[in-house]
Computed example of a mutant assay.
Amino acid sequence: MSTIKLLTTGGTIAMSHDANTGKVDRPTNEVLTGWLKGTIEVVSEDVCNKSSPQMTLVELGALLRAVKSSLADPKIDGVVVTHGTDTLEETAYFLDLQLPPGKPVVVTGAMKASNEAGTDGPANLMNAVRAAACADSRSRGVLVVMQDEIHAARYVTKMHTSSLHAFRSPESGPLGWVRGEKAEYRFSLEPAACYPDADVSSLSSVFLIKAVLDMGAEWLDFALERGARGIVLEAFGQGNVPPALLPGIRRAIAAGVPVVLVSRCAGGEPQGTYGYEGGGAMLRELGVVFARELSGPKARLKLAALLSLHADAAKVRAAFERP
């Protein structure tokens, strides 16, 4: 019999909602795990009870320690983390950055509270546990299981505010599915870089800025004045920004502050195609780092990890040019 450690952090999957008062209560763990009997044993531990917008590095640090402790236990075959959906993709990627390949770690959540009609929590949890108990899930990085689908933490994102099918991986699609009693995979990913010694406690000094129409350099200057150690810039399309941003980008790079470029589009990645003023080709010449395959929030986490390890400009660039 496989033994799976269930680490709960709160979120909709661990809530019941009173439509009359608006009050949200937390059901007992039996509501979530009482039906999981038979071939898989589930051992549960509460890490915290937070809605995902309330999660901070304090809770993420506690969760990381709990996951590492569980993985080190020879009696535990895999770990499942339940989490609110709003920041689920960031927590999953945070774990993915710092956990070496090995026993499966699966993150899941729910779009509907446990007492709502059509709640998806029990099915998502059951499938997450089955995926974590499957030997074929080992060494695939941190996984996210929602609606029978298995996604890689580095690619998955919440694409809809309320749909049960909110979670998608726009570029890769799901790695596989949970069918019946087991996980089935259609392909494997190249292993991602792992930074087990990283300390992202300085995450607040990495600024995420989205490019918008007629944007000025004062947005970047504000970040620099507030002590930014790194800047992630969500650019238009294939990696283009308003020309008025260029002086701020130059000042950041001259000050030794890495500027990492992602696209604000849901799919694709910056390519540096255009040579006009503010175009990606010009940004690359200025020394802007182009991030492959990551969203802005995930690039922010990765940059914070790299900076905590005192990575120089060359190492930052190399790290973002691979998954």
Rank of each mutant, 00 (worst) to 15 (best):
56 T>A: 02
134 C>V: 01
54 Q>K: 14
39 T>C: 03
126 M>S: 13
32 L>S: 07
107 V>T: 10
40 I>W: 10
131 A>S: 12
110 A>E: 04
140 R>C: 11
58 V>C: 05
135 A>Q: 10
97 L>T: 06
72 A>K: 10
48 C>V: 14
71 L>P: 07
121 G>H: 00
60 L>T: 14
128 A>G: 12
133 A>F: 07
80 V>M: 04
50 K>R: 15
82 T>L: 03
107 V>A: 10
30 E>A: 13
73 D>S: 06
56 T>F: 02
72 A>R: 09
61 G>K: 13
123 A>Y: 05
123 A>V: 12
47 V>N: 11
81 V>Q: 10
69 S>F: 00
49 N>D: 13
123 A>H: 03
125 L>Y: 04
126 M>H: 11
150 I>P: 08
66 A>N: 10
123 A>C: 02
48 C>Q: 13
34 G>K: 13
35 W>H: 15
83 H>I: 05
97 L>C: 09
113 A>D: 00
126 M>T: 13
63 L>E: 10
136 D>Y: 01
44 S>H: 14
94 F>A: 09
51 S>M: 12
151 H>L: 05
43 V>F: 01
92 A>S: 14
109 G>V: 05
53 P>C: 11
47 V>F: 08
62 A>G: 13
30 E>S: 10
38 G>S: 13
69 S>M: 04
102 G>W: 06
155 Y>G: 05
137 S>V: 01
84 G>H: 04
84 G>M: 02
46 D>Y: 03
150 I>R: 04
65 R>K: 14
102 G>I: 07
31 V>P: 01
82 T>S: 07
103 K>S: 08
110 A>K: 01
62 A>N: 15
44 S>K: 03
143 L>F: 07
145 V>I: 09
